[in-house]
């Protein structure tokens, strides 16, 4: 980010930036930077809070009125802590693997995939309601059913089917994983039986409690042992967050 500022300013364009990692900005020394104490992924701080976002935005833009630099200014306020602990209500939403129709012939993988299918089916109606209400979704390429199918096919070593504009199986798996996670989050947002979880609660729930999280970890394991270099890289870095691997 700071490097872009250097390149653009050298070409005659005044720049200002938001900084999420103060140490990097101190090293790179871009012309104008506002450090904010927010979590990665939320440079403007709070979703659905226009007044807070406007304060952050103006604080970054007002650096243009300073006479000289480089300048690195700290935004004074962190986002308020979320008061509601959503842990219990979230945990009740997942489909535990043991809820799958049990059959002595089923392998552990089959049980997991069965629970995963049930979970996707249950969450689908909440996702659809949210989609109708909002009018759009963050899902980019794979409908919930298509994402589920691709991941299950991969686990079962079936041929993968994905859109032509996606260049490789590795990219398809990555996009399906992202879209599946977006689907779960948007489903949870629509339900009346829980409070909005903070990011760490959602991540804990998704990766540790849902069948979807376990399926993605299974996909990761297969990728790590693949002969395909792209799949190995995807499995190693791009499917499961560092703190959940």
């Amino acid at each position: 980010m700071g490097a872009l500022a250097h390149y653009l300013e050298a070409e005659g364009l005044p720049t200002t930036q938001i900084s999420l990692i103060r140490e990097h900005t101190e090293t790179i020394k871009p012309p104008r930077a506002l450090w904010v104490p927010f979590e990665l992924g939320r440079p403007l701080g709070l979703p659905n809070d226009p007044a807070f976002q406007r304060r952050v935005l103006l604080a970054a833009l007002e650096l243009f009125d300073l006479p000289e630099g480089p300048v690195l200014v700290d935004f004074p306020d962190d986002v308020p802590e979320q008061a509601v602990d959503a842990r219990d209500s979230l945990d009740n939403l997942a489909c535990p693997v043991s809820f799958a129709p049990l059959s002595q012939e089923k392998t552990e993988t089959e049980k997991l995939l069965s629970a995963f299918r049930s979970e996707v089916t249950e969450f689908r109606s909440w996702y659809d309601l949210g989609l109708n209400k909002r009018g759009y979704s963050a899902i980019a390429y794979f409908s919930p059913d298509a994402a589920g199918r691709l991941l299950i096919d991969f686990v079962q070593e079936e041929p993968l089917q994905f859109p032509e504009d996606i260049s490789s199986p590795a990219a398809a798996l990555r996009f399906a994983a992202q879209d599946l996670k977006a689907f779960y989050y948007e489903s949870v947002l629509s339900r009346p039986d829980f409070a909005l979880p903070n990011t760490s609660e959602f991540n804990r729930w998704f990766w540790q409690k849902t069948a979807a999280g376990r399926v993605l970890k299974a996909v990761r394991e297969i990728c790590l042992h693949s002969n395909d270099e792209q799949l190995r890289m995807t499995g190693g870095m791009l499917l499961v967050p560092l703190d959940q691997a």
């Binding site: 990665l40 709070l46 659905n48 990555r174 989050y185 947002l189 990011t199 791009l238």
Partner: peptide
């Protein structure tokens, strides 16, 4: 839509409100 490679930052803020990442409305 967002197709960033990394899995190590929050995307749920963007899912709720794009302005928390790309403040064009603001």
């Amino acid at each position: 839509v967002m197709t960033h490679l990394s899995t190590n930052f929050d995307r749920t803020g963007f899912q709720q409100d794009w302005n928390v990442v790309f403040p064009l409305d603001r």
